[in-house]
């Protein structure tokens, strides 16, 4: 089932289907390896509820929930 990354919970394993949106944030996400086909493990949510931390391509990355909303994913398992 396709959904967006901001809908996921810590512990979810997902694969990126597509990154929508545009501009510098998207470009930065792509540079950091958030591209189609990459697997993501959602690690945690910051103590104040935003941003989130994920494991991608073997390292830890953080970005805001608003930007996670532009990342369309497919859940692998939960």
């Amino acid at each position: 089932m396709e959904t967006t990354l901001n809908e996921c919970r810590p512990g979810d394993k997902v694969v990126i289907v597509r990154v929508s949106g545009e501009g510098p944030v998207k470009r930065r996400l792509m540079d950091m390896g958030v591209t189609r086909g990459a697997e993501i493990l959602v690690r945690k949510v910051a103590p104040m509820g935003d941003p989130i931390e994920v494991n991608i391509r073997g390292y830890e990355l953080t970005f805001r929930k608003a930007d996670a909303g532009n990342i369309i994913i497919q859940k692998l398992e939960s």
């Binding site: 944030v25 996400l29 830890e60």
Partner: peptide, 12 residues
Amino acid sequence: GEAEAFVMELPP
């Protein structure tokens, strides 16, 4: 203008 994006690596 747009505030700086917060996309940051959390190094080990």
